[in-house]
Design a protein around this nucleic acid. Structure first.
Length: 581
RNA sequence: GGGAGCGUAGCUCAAUUGGCAGAGCAAUGGACUCUUAAUCCAUAGGUUGAAGGUUCGAUUCCUUCCGCUCUCACCA
């Protein structure tokens, strides 16, 4: 008896497991078809946007809307609210811009149409037409089926349409509109649900789009040419940055390929060819760990300008990013994780060599370095290059103990320093460990005075060849840009590549390959050029106040779920018919 | 890869020393012609991430695995 009853209950749909809810909705699809209503209809007049309607009538009260009927609007979107009062129903429709209420009265739409509301569920896509009015509580609404001052909007071939119509049946229920969807994993894996439910997520990606549009506009206005270079790199081309690449393979050519880790070397070839200002916005792939600031695929912009130096690019960067902050967020001062960052130019400059020397001095009370800094303060007339030269001379003479003293309490730094074979490497590691976290929090900053050894593609500084003409821009504790006057001496570039090959031989998995064609290009002569790369995702994080890069990447890479993996096992066999069993 | 935390209904979250797995929203049936998280009556919904173990009894304790978050490392 009991079993029979529960079986009957199930058949009547008196359950609410997800499977039963889907079955129930599939039943409504069938009912719609029986009634001649297409559950996946596309006979829709081009809808008016909810934003336009709301803006147009923002100042009109209920009386004004009654006295002067509005035009007859068509509105379409997802049903996000559904409240029935009996013979009156309120429907919240959400389109790309926002929500607008539909007011359905049984006596206005007719019994048949009103009855069809029973087949409507939260999450369905629907449309309605009618004039605008304000309800008793003052909310602007579309009065379904009530003609306004213009004809009923129809799509081609239609002669009439109901005041309210379901367009697309959703088989799955949407998450609660009140509580939203907060489970991070579901939000990333099912971004379509996240976007549909959490409107602020849409806004973040709109900002990202404005950011990229703004960059294009900024560079186009300055005579830059947008280009596209290969994503698939031959193994010897996969350079331009220190990172491990993804490996892939071209079947027809039986050719091993790498996904690019930078666009740099191809863009500089174009400068050789005569495109004096070029840029590329594109996806970069780096085979490395995933964390708050790293996604294995990300978007970079690199731009190169002939007859410019890295100092020109500092000015350009300040102008571009402060302008982008304004364009994207409405202000040059943008909050990030609780701190307001002021992007107004000029940004403070921080010397890597000088800051590292200061740290060593503080740790060691070393007379030689101290004297150099003291001299700098005493005589501002002292040539900056001479000062840096003096600092480097003294740093080069320091015993290993001086570095380890500075690294006290930093076991990781100690380990890294022991791996750094060059003075430049030590300086770079010491900067990262000791100084980077002290960079200004409320301002972006430029780090300058980079050592040669960590900059294989940058031009040596004329008056101090142990340094290169390079800067990195930091903001919000992240590196957002890297730029330098480009190395265009082909023999010097050869030597740098050889040093990279040697490093690779010693086990450096991130060393660049020897790109002989790039050297060949330089042998044809590249004009003096400065180039820069900006991490667009990082910049988007800053301007969207996003704590994680995953909040500005629509579909971030996640580990496959166990369920999904077991499901796809079967698919693999189907999609690989050529694989011998 | 190391460390810490988390995983319970479609969604958001509870569950006492280890003692019958619950609520709100969503869903289903009903009432209601101006709602705003509508309200009211009724109903249904669970392999507590997975697999083992301890126990008379496990959401709870132990082990392993999977995934997510934070963090360190790697990495700019």
């Amino acid at each position: 008896m009991t079993d029979t009853k529960s079986a009957e209950t199930k058949q009547e749909g008196h359950t609410s497991s997800i499977e039963d809810q889907i079955k129930l909705r599939e039943g409504k699809v069938a009912t719609l078809r029986e009634r001649g209503a297409h559950p996946y209809n596309n006979q829709v007049p081009s809808p008016h946007g909810t934003q336009m309607i709301k803006e147009r009538h923002a100042q009109h009260d209920a009386l004004a809307l009654e006295a002067n009927h509005t035009e007859t609007y068509a509105v379409a979107g997802r049903v996000v609210a559904l409240r029935s009062m009996g013979k009156v129903t309120f429907i919240g429709l959400r389109d790309g811009a926002g929500d607008l209420q539909i007011f359905v009265r049984k006596d206005k739409v007719g019994d048949a149409a009103y009855e069809s509301l029973k087949l409507l569920d939260l999450g369905d896509i629907a449309c309605a037409w009618g004039r605008a009015l304000r309800t008793k509580t003052g909310e602007l609404s579309i009065a379904a089926g009530e003609i306004g001052s213009t004809p009923v909007p129809l799509s081609a071939g239609q002669t009439e349409r109901p005041g309210f119509q379901l367009l697309t049946k959703a088989l799955r229920p949407m998450p609660s509109s009140w509580f939203g969807l907060s489970d991070q994993e579901t939000r990333y894996r099912q971004r379509y649900v996240d976007l549909a439910v959490n409107l602020e997520v849409r806004e973040a990606f709109r900002k990202r789009a404005r950011l990229i549009t703004g960059m294009r506009k900024f560079l186009d206005e300055r005579g830059y040419l947008e280009v596209e270079t290969p994503v698939l790199h031959k193994p010897e081309e996969a350079g331009g940055a220190t990172a491990r690449p993804f490996a892939t393979h071209h079947n027809a050519l039986d050719l091993d390929l790498k996904l690019r880790i930078a666009t740099e070397l191809h863009l500089k070839r174009l400068v050789v060819g005569g495109f004096e200002r070029v840029y590329e916005i594109g996806r970069i792939f780096r085979n490395e760990g995933i964390d708050r600031r790293h996604n294995p695929e990300f978007t970079s912009i690199e731009f190169y300008q002939a007859y410019a130096t890295y100092e020109d690019l500092m000015a350009l960067t300040e102008a571009m990013i402060s302008q982008l902050a304004l364009a994207v967020s409405g202000s040059a001062i943008v909050p990030y994780q609780g701190t307001n960052i002021d992007y107004t130019a000029p940004w403070p400059r921080v010397s890597m060599v000088e800051k590292v020397a200061e740290k060593l001095l503080a740790a060691n009370d070393l007379g030689t370095i101290g004297r150099a800094l003291y001299e700098m303060q005493l005589s501002p007339a002292l040539e900056r290059d001479a000062f840096l030269k003096a600092l480097l001379d003294r740093l080069a003479l320091l015993p290993a103990s001086a570095w380890s003293d500075a690294a006290k309490g930093e076991p990781e730094l100690l380990r890294k320093l022991s791996h750094a074979h060059s003075l430049g490497g030590k300086i770079a590691w010491a900067f990262e460990a000791l100084v980077e976290h002290e960079l200004p929090k409320d301002r972006p900053s430029f780090v300058i005075d980079f050592p040669l050894e960590v900059s294989p593609l940058a031009r040596k500084r004329d008056r101090e060849p142990r340094l290169v003409d390079r800067f990195e821009a930091y903001a919000g504790g992240m590196e957002i840009a890297n730029a330098f006057s480009e190395l265009n001496d082909p023999r010097d570039q050869e030597a740098r590549f050889q040093a990279q090959v040697a490093a690779a031989a010693l086990g450096d998995a991130e060393a660049m390959p020897y790109d002989s064609d790039f050297v060949r290009a330089l042998e044809h002569g590249m004009p003096p050029t400065a180039g820069e790369g900006i991490g667009i995702d990082r910049l988007a994080m800053l301007l969207c106040d996003a704590a994680s890069i995953r909040d500005v990447v629509l579909f971030p890479l996640l580990k496959p779920q166990a369920d999904a993996a077991s499901l796809s096992d079967g698919d693999d066999e189907v999609t690989q018919p050529g694989t011998p069993a």
